[in-house]
């Protein structure tokens, strides 16, 4: 394959990556968010593959392999094992913001990401420039935004993992020679995140009877702080 074709394919894949990041912000069904995340991880792996072919870097094949095995396969299985069954049937109706507003803010964040990415791109060698860095930053910001607007346990978890995906999408372009062992360790870390948050969700579900963990926030001040003293915490 020619370099031009690989660059175009990479651009296509990263573009789709950005779309999935938008979907994760706005999609209501928990199962849908999970599926979008899986699709996003496959896109990340494809981008690593195309960049690997483009620059003959075996190392990036490793990244692609790690991503394609751990995120779409092991991760949903682990989530199913740990989190209560109910999380899949949940449909999130009361997000902190309504969907059109959330999408508009998300759009603004993407534009911000391009502005943030520009000085970084100017600082690196031309071969590292490409759509990966700004879209990766956008993925990172949209993941963070997902965490702030979502209340259900699984979309929150996916927001965290999507931030990591965003960081990696930039990472495979600019820090290509990162030791594979480190990548593997970071991916394993993602699995532990899923395990711990799944267990916590189960505990919340058992003791509080909901998986909308974001809604726990209002209870805090009334329960543990006596009336008359307010705290920002």
């Amino acid at each position: 394959m020619t370099d031009q074709l690989l660059d175009n394919l990479n651009a296509l894949v990263t573009g789709l990556f950005l779309l999935t990041a938008f979907g994760i912000v706005a999609m209501r069904q928990t199962r849908g968010v999970l599926n979008l995340f899986i699709f996003q991880s496959i896109l990340l792996a494809l981008s690593a593959l195309f960049l690997g072919l483009r620059y003959q870097s075996e190392h990036l094949y490793g990244v692609a392999l790690v991503n394609v095995i751990i995120k779409p396969l092991i991760l949903p299985w682990l989530l199913k094992k740990t989190a209560p069954e109910e999380v899949y049937t949940r449909r999130e109706v009361n997000q902190a913001l309504n969907i059109p507003t959330a999408l508009l803010i998300a759009l603004a964040l993407v534009i911000l990401a391009y502005f943030l990415g520009q000085p970084l791109l100017n600082a690196v060698a031309p071969e590292f420039r490409g759509p990966n860095v700004p879209i990766g930053i956008a993925g990172l910001l949209l993941g963070a935004f997902t965490i702030t607007v979502r209340r259900e346990a699984v979309p929150l978890l996916i927001g965290i993992l999507a931030m990591e995906n965003g960081a990696f999408l930039s990472g495979i372009a600019i820090s290509r020679k990162l030791p594979l062992l480190v990548e593997l360790a970071i991916a394993t870390d993602g699995l532990i995140v899923v395990f711990i948050m799944g267990v916590l969700t189960r505990a919340v579900h058992r003791h509080v009877g909901t998986t909308a963990v974001g809604e726990l926030a209002n209870l805090k001040e009334n329960v543990s702080v006596p009336a008359g003293s307010e705290e920002a915490g």
Partner: peptide
């Protein structure tokens, strides 16, 4: 209820920060 809420906030915010730091 409070301990679970505290743990949940702790995990979500710390990992959000960790995502930033990873980049």
């Amino acid at each position: 209820r409070e301990a679970l809420e505290a743990a949940w906030k702790y995990v979500v915010l710390s990992l959000m920060g960790a995502g930033m730091a990873l980049f």
